[in-house]
Design a protein around this nucleic acid. Structure first.
Length: 289
DNA sequence: AGGTCAACCTGAGCGC
DNA sequence: TGCGCTCAGGTTGACC
């Protein structure tokens, strides 16, 4: 599912239910996702107050009053949905109501807070993860050490990206997916950012001209901002914390548009789909060089 | 060292 | 109705 805009959308939706609230109950319905849940996971969450809810890369971070941070990754298909007390919400095939513990087959974690609210983590592919890390040592944890800068921060700029791409013989598509270079971009937004900057995904990372690097930085920031404003992109699984789908999929300019006309003004090209590093890339061979 | 690729897992969609 | 195949917002470890 989620690249930065989807994770950020979910995080913002969780704030009213979690930030400043006490986790009154935690239910963990299986032993693992992509990795095992931490030992005594539910017990370490219950009674904790969530001091703040932030995001780093594609991880949601909940700093807890006891000094640990709950780290959540949504993998490819993870969702987190909030149900306020007394509110009935239809999500997929299931109807939830706070009170009776009715969950679907892939609802792996349920948190309740004194908001009051119930938060349900759903992930049918189980590529997500949850971890507990000492807040003070967060940056040193293996999950975060070595991550590149946040794409929407000033730390992600042309100078920095030029240095990171220097000498790299991997396609620019692969380089941008590498979270050690810059975090948050995934298959969709890399395609969109390259399209907006007229750069072919096949170009070797180290071969970009300075003005192309600058354009890529600018386009990356802009497409991520645009997508956040639309609640992210829903292909299949992404949902905002309300359960509603995102809207940015209606604004894709190349992703998923193979065989359709290039949308760049004056370009008569046709969008092409190729496979790079085992994943689909979409681009216009005519105007993306 | 740097780069590519399969593996993790389930479900949806398609052709036959 | 069902089977087999392909594909899907990510990350990682094994391999060249």
């Amino acid at each position: 599912m989620p690249e930065l805009p989807e994770v950020e959308t979910v995080r913002m939706g969780l704030v009213p239910a979690l930030e400043g609230r006490i986790i009154t109950k935690a239910l963990v319905r299986r032993a693992d996702l992509r990795r095992p849940f931490p030992p005594r996971f539910a017990a370490r969450l219950e009674g904790q107050r969530v001091l703040r809810l932030t995001r780093r890369a594609k991880y949601i971070l909940a700093d807890l009053s006891g000094g640990e941070t709950l780290v959540i990754h949504l993998g490819m298909s993870g969702r987190m949905a909030v149900y306020a007390k007394g509110q009935r919400t239809k999500l997929g095939n299931y109807v939830y109501d706070i009170g009776p513990p009715v969950e679907g087959r892939h609802d792996h974690v349920v948190l309740e807070t004194d908001a009051p609210a119930r938060i349900v983590y759903t992930d049918h592919r189980r590529f997500g993860l949850m971890a507990l890390v000492e807040t003070a040592a967060l940056d040193d944890d293996a999950l975060f050490a070595g991550l590149g800068p946040e794409p929407l921060s000033p730390a992600f700029n042309a100078k920095m990206l030029t240095a990171a791409l220097d000498g790299r013989r991997t396609p620019i598509k692969s380089a941008l997916l590498d979270q050690r270079i810059v975090v948050g971009l995934g298959n969709i937004y890399v395609a969109e950012a390259l399209f907006r900057s007229f750069i072919s995904p096949k170009r070797l990372a180290g071969s970009l001209k300075p003005e192309q690097v600058a354009a890529l930085v600018k386009a990356s920031k802009q497409v991520l901002k645009d997508a956040i404003a639309k609640g992210g992109s829903t292909l299949r699984d992404h949902a905002q914390a309300t359960g509603d789908p995102g809207n940015f999929q209606h604004h894709f300019q190349v992703y998923g548009r193979a065989g359709k006309p290039c949308l760049h003004k004056g370009c008569r090209g046709t969008v092409k789909r190729i496979t790079q590093a085992g994943r689909s890339s979409f681009y216009c061979p005519v105007c993306q060089k």
